[in-house]
Nucleic acid binder design. Structure first.
Lengths: 339, 339
DNA sequence: CACGATGTCTGCATCGTTGCAGAGCTGCCA
DNA sequence: TGGCAGCTCTGCAACGATGCAGACATCGTG
């Protein structure tokens, strides 16, 4: 059966379509008698407003779109949850989509037939898409970027300070007295800005502590997944002079590393201390529990939604803002001091 | 700047709106000369179709909505990924929403102003919402349910066979020679049908093996989260006669239990074997790695989307189908046989 | 050359809703 | 009693797209 429309309700109640609309929206004053009649008809027909029509008329949908590379990466799942909650507080529904970490899928966002036109705004955590591409293909949908992509000033942008986050992580390892500190997750070859910033922070910390930089201790990984962390850790321990600590560029790599070290018979933290970034819940229950740098996801989500809503509601584009979210060090078992 | 409309393009190209539409959609034959003119104008104005308008006219949006309780629960995140992929194969975009495991939020789906009218169909993994409520509030949007909610025949429904999954898990523990097997995750008090089915499977396995059922070994948990698993495991080990194996109703509980046992100085699997359900990736990297019952998430997603698309596209409702997805046992370190 | 068939192109109506302007009624005051 | 507010209520137009029917030009055929 077809959904009831305002017209159906109006006919049944013997009033004008407009009056039904007024009752539904509470816009204009409606007499009690008419209101009662209309409400009866509304219930009898189980009327539900056609939001597509309303959206067309109003030129807005009240929906934001969050696009992340992979929804089953815990960091993105936790972030998505926070963004949905933040959107809700601002009166927007947030729909989540993922690109499967596929550059082609990411670029589909820019195409003529992208579903983005359905949304009032876009929060995008890009993997390979550059701000430049985004600007050139000039989608008029307001956009806020998440994560550390080349900020070229054309988009608002929310991220933690990745250099200092990585520096904090590394300095924490140094504070334990570790001197051969490995880094897992560099991405020098592609649009891996986040990774490169973390490498920079890692090197800063070494320098400040007067520790030598050994390129053999820096392991690139194509992606930030557990099994690559395990592989990298295994490879590191096979070095002639293996590390006594590993800084992983995210928690998944670190959790994989924990597992790889265990399999290799390496004790954590006694032989090798491990730290990650992301503060995902999984790390709390790992064995040993994982030390990490915790980005304030709630804050990231809030700031992103706030910026986006500002862009949407102030028609005229306010200057794109580069917003820094905070992060904190959370030391757990994987970086306990030696007994 | 306002988005360009068909009318803008038509004016610029000196043709009718209809012709522009034909070019955009490739519907009707258009001469090369006109097509060229139109395409120039399309590019100059960076035209993008207004999908809201198109959807209104066509009476469909090409979008499905997936609603889960919590997106940062790995099972749901992994499922969401599979559903998005399945939707895509069927030509639908899937948007994900979550209810924060809040019964009130779940019921909002049924209200007059639910955003569901925007979607062609709904895939719902309900927590407390019953099929009856869903039916009574009679949303006309096609719905497919996921998970084991009371199946009353009014909705299509995809789930694994929870009784046999729980039985398989328990029998696996029994096959290791364990005799005092605990169950963590029962939900006897609320609409916890899934939990209750798993309890039934657990008891079946005990019976078949001729093992006694000890109510003290069945721990209810309000939700299926890691910390509750840890608490439950700790409590179990404090019993006068503690278990030698624990069957957790999902992997998060099991991962929490692993952690709780470790903290209590209990060795897994030597002292206590542990198994979960869900097959989330996290379990592979846990220490020890987690044995689990793996539901075929890809199959669940495919079946759900297929059923839903059938409902949508065959206007007339085909009989609601109860579909069983398959599951397999994955034995890992947490249930290794004793040395 | 007349005719129908084909191939292009256009205008109108429509999807279901809301903005707007104004119609009709009532009551109040001069 | 006339006129003006103020309150309800209504009809029309519009959001931007597509379905449909038909206009017009061109072509081939007898």
């Amino acid at each position: 059966m077809r959904e009831a429309t305002l017209r159906d309700v109006a006919t049944r109640a013997g009033v004008s379509i407009r009056t039904v609309s007024n009752v539904v929206n509470g816009y204009a004053p409606v007499s009690d008698t008419l209101r009662a009649k209309v409400e009866t008809a509304l219930n009898e027909l189980d009327y539900r407003p056609n939001l597509i029509a309303r959206n067309l008329k109003q030129g807005r949908s009240g929906m934001l779109c969050l696009v992340v590379p992979e929804l089953d990466v815990p960091y993105f799942a936790e972030l998505a949850r926070a963004v949905i909650a933040a959107g809700r507080r601002h009166g927007y529904a947030v729909m989540v989509d993922q690109t499967d970490a596929d550059p082609v899928r990411e670029r589909e966002l820019l195409t003529r037939n992208s579903r983005l036109t359905l949304f009032d705004g876009l929060i995008l955590s890009p993997l390979t898409l550059s701000a430049q591409e985004l600007r050139e293909r000039g989608n008029k949908t307001p956009v806020v970027l998440l994560g550390e992509h080349l900020f070229d000033g054309s988009f608002s942008h929310v991220a933690i300070d990745n250099v200092s986050a990585a520096r904090d992580a590394t300095e924490h390892l140094i504070s334990l007295g570790r001197t051969r500190i490995a880094a897992v997750g560099d991405q020098p070859y592609r649009t891996g800005e986040t990774a490169q910033l973390r490498t920079a922070g890692y090197r800063q910390a070494l320098e400040r502590a007067g520790l030598p930089f050994d390129p053999a201790l820096v392991r690139p990984t194509e992606r930030f997944h557990r099994h690559l962390g395990a592989t990298a850790a295994t490879a590191l321990m096979a070095l002639p002079s293996p590390p006594d600590a590993i800084f992983c560029y995210n928690d998944l790599l670190a959790l994989g590393a924990l597992r790889g070290l265990l399999t290799a018979g390496v004790r954590v933290p006694d032989d090798v201390a491990v730290i990650g970034i992301d503060g995902i819940e999984e790390g709390e229950f790992a064995t040993p529990s994982l030390s990490t740098i915790v980005p304030d996801k709630q804050q990231i989500a809030d700031l992103a939604v706030e910026s986006l809503v500002a862009l949407i509601e102030q028609g005229a584009t306010p200057a794109p803002a580069e917003v820094r979210a905070s992060h904190t060090l959370l030391a757990r078992e994987s970086t306990l001091g030696r007994a």
